[in-house]
C-alpha cells in the first residue's frame, strides 16, 4: 500500500517537527496573545458593521461569527501546517537540501505539504471551533436540510474540501520557488491575503466573489463550511467547492512534476 507508506512517513516528519517546536514553551503565550487580538479585531469589526443594520446580504451577526470561527479553524491549517511546511520547502530549495528529499523513496510533494507543522496553531483550531459553536447556538440550525446532524456532516465535508483547496493552492504558488529561488515573501504575502477573508463571499459583488472563488479560492474555502453551518449551503456552492478542490489538486500535482524535473539542485 503506497498511500499508507506515504502517510506513515509524513506523520513521522510531522511528529519530529512538532516536538522540536513544543520545546519552546514561551511561544505558546505569544500565539495566545496573537490569537486573542485577532479574534478581538474580528468581533469589533462585526460589531461596527451591525451597529448600522441587522443583516448584511442576508447574513446576521451570529452567522458572521460562524464565518470567523471557520476562518480561525481553517487558518490553523493554513498557518500551522501548510505555511510552516512550505517555508521549509522554500528554504530547502534555496540551500539545495531539497536534493536529499528527492533521493528518499517517498513522494516528495506529500512530505512537502505537511512536513513541519507548528503545534501551537492548534490553538486557532480550538478557538475556531468554540466560536463556531457559539455562533451556531445563537443562530439556530433547524432550518438546515437534514437537520443538525445533516448540517454538521455537510460542514465537515466542506471543511475537508476547504483544506484541500488551500493546501493545493499554497503548494501551487510555492512551486514558483523552483524558478525564482526566493519564495518566503510569497508565503508571507499569501498569509496576509488570507487574513482579510473574514467575510462570506456571498455578500460581495459578482466580480469579487468570482475572484475569491477562483483566482484566490481561499474566500470560497472560508465560506462553504460556514454556509453548511448556517443552513444556506446550495448545490452551486457544493459544486464549486468540489470542482475547485479537484482542479487545484490536479494542477498542483502537474506543476510540481514539471518544477521538480526542472530543479537542478543547488547544494555544494
Amino acid at each position: 500500500m503506497r498511500g499508507m507508506h506515504e502517510a506513515r512517513v509524513v506523520t513521522a516528519h510531522a511528529r519530529i517537527a512538532a516536538s522540536t517546536e513544543l520545546a519552546y514553551r514561551s511561544n505558546f503565550w505569544a500565539y495566545l496573545v496573537n490569537t486573542v487580538v485577532t479574534l478581538g479585531v474580528s468581533i469589533a469589526s462585526i460589531a461596527l458593521v451591525y451597529r448600522h443594520t441587522d443583516e448584511v446580504g442576508g447574513w446576521t451577526s451570529d452567522d458572521l461569527l460562524v464565518v470567523v470561527g471557520v476562518f480561525f479553524a481553517l487558518g490553523a491549517f493554513v498557518n500551522g501546517v501548510v505555511h510552516s511546511s512550505m517555508a521549509k520547502l522554500v528554504a530547502d530549495i534555496r540551500t539545495g537540501d531539497f536534493d536529499y528529499r528527492l533521493l528518499k523513496p517517498v513522494d516528495a510533494q506529500a512530505v512537502a505539504v505537511a512536513q513541519a507543522p507548528d503545534p501551537w496553531r492548534a490553538l486557532d483550531l480550538v478557538i475556531g471551533i468554540v466560536v463556531i459553536g457559539f455562533g451556531v447556538s445563537r443562530g439556530g440550525l433547524e432550518a438546515a436540510a437534514g437537520g443538525i446532524p445533516g448540517a454538521i456532516g455537510a460542514a465537515i465535508g466542506m471543511f475537508a474540501c476547504a483544506v484541500v483547496i488551500v493546501a493545493a493552492f499554497w503548494t501551487l504558488l510555492a512551486s514558483i520557488t523552483f524558478w525564482t529561488v526566493q519564495g518566503e515573501g510569497i508565503l508571507w504575502a499569501l498569509d496576509d491575503m488570507y487574513d482579510h477573508l473574514r467575510w462570506p463571499i456571498g455578500i460581495f459583488p459578482g466580480g469579487l466573489r468570482l475572484a475569491l472563488s477562483t483566482i484566490f479560492p481561499a474566500g470560497l474555502a472560508v465560506t462553504v463550511p460556514a454556509e453548511a453551518l448556517t443552513g444556506r449551503l446550495d448545490a452551486t456552492s457544493v459544486f464549486m467547492a468540489l470542482a475547485m478542490a479537484t482542479a487545484l489538486l490536479v494542477a498542483s500535482r502537474v506543476v510540481w512534476r514539471v518544477a521538480v524535473r526542472r530543479y537542478e539542485g543547488a547544494s555544494s
Binding site: 448600522h52 441587522d54 525564482t180 515573501g185 477573508l197 467575510w199 459583488p205 469579487l208
Partner: peptide
Amino acid sequence: ASFAIWALSSTLQAVVAMAVWQAVAAA
C-alpha cells in the same frame, strides 16, 4: 513576483472593506 502579491494583498484588504460597507449601505 512577491511584490505583485503584496500589492494584491493590500488591494484585497481595501476591496473587502469597501464591499462590506457597500453591502451595509445597500441594507
